[in-house]
Design a protein around this nucleic acid. Structure first.
Lengths: 184, 184
DNA sequence: GTCTATAGAAGGATAGAC
DNA sequence: GTCTATCCTTCTATAGAC
């Protein structure tokens, strides 16, 4: 557990600083100071600044892909439930990392992760319970991106269970008055 | 109307590029190339890169403050309706600018606008219809930030009325099952 | 594995001609 | 008003000692 102490420190500080200042807004110098080492040490552990970012978000991406796989065989309401619960859980465990991934979709200041755009699109559709209603599609997009943002600033969740709140919001936003549910 | 052709071009291109690449992710060189002029010309019209950003978002900030003023005398459901309709309208008219303002709240890569944090907090409360339920508070935050994000990528709104969709989503997300409405 | 020193590129901003 | 040329800083990354 105590192996590669420095490498872990770098990842932790980089996550914190990237979340606060953005990827382009955070320099290797900033990270080095936060860690308490030199820039050269950073680049000994990671080939480049981009490589550091990739290493940072890799675990989150892996889990995102796993969730995507699980969703592949689900439809409608089933997909929605798994997507919402799975994504909220994932975002809570990888707060800062997921936001970096999400930013990479919109802002080209960050290196792209292959296949992420299509994955995000499938996730939106699942969040919408594959509803044909365009409003549900918009709702899914709003909630999906909103969750990513809120989870960052709410590092201090004031007593309330953030997980329950976020899933509830996702539930509400996408629920049409007439929900096309499969009453099996 | 044809006065200060270049200045307007600079603002337009800067808005486009900042939205796509982020503030730090977009250089004066990038903007100059897009406009078709030199960096020096940019800095003749605007004192600095920061000043360019401020000039860009100033109109949006002004309207945001105006909305905030209107909200000051409203409560509960009335506040919610005015806040949601007013904000959605504002965001649709200043798509790229509002997002820059919103980013300035989270990411310190962008110069801060005075009083914006408190304003944003009041807006959140209004979006929540001043509900005491913490879930409504979270819902308001999710929807508020989600709207800012979605409106950017949806430059191509596919036939659907984005305004209606966004207000509907905001309505749904914050509506508790038991809405504390003032049935006058 | 970590450091100092430095290379090499890119960024924001200024000077001065036109 | 717009340009070219330049300055100075900051940034990423490398070289080489320890």
């Amino acid at each position: 557990m105590t192996r590669n102490h420095t490498r872990e420190d770098i990842l932790a500080e980089a996550a914190r600083l990237f979340a606060r200042g953005g990827f382009k807004g955070t320099s290797l110098h900033d990270i080095a100071v936060a860690v308490g080492c030199s820039k050269a040490t950073l680049l000994y552990h990671f080939a480049s600044k981009d490589a550091l970012l990739v290493a940072l978000v890799e675990p989150a991406i892996e889990e995102l892909r796993a969730l995507d796989d699980r969703l592949a065989v689900l439809h409608g309401e089933d997909a929605r439930l798994v997507a919402v619960n799975g994504f909220v859980d994932l975002v809570l465990r990888y707060r800062r990392e997921v936001t970096l991934v999400y930013d990479s979709l919109q802002v080209s200041e960050i290196p792209r992760f292959p296949g992420i755009d299509a994955l995000a699109e499938r996730l939106v559709r699942a969040f919408a319970g594959h509803s044909p209603d365009p409003v549900d599609d918009i709702a899914a997009r709003v909630v999906l991106s909103g969750i990513c943002t809120v989870v960052i600033e709410h590092a201090d969740s004031g007593g309330i269970d953030l997980r329950d709140a976020l899933t509830t919001v996702a539930e509400r936003a996408v629920s049409s008055q007439v929900r096309p549910r499969q009453e099996s």
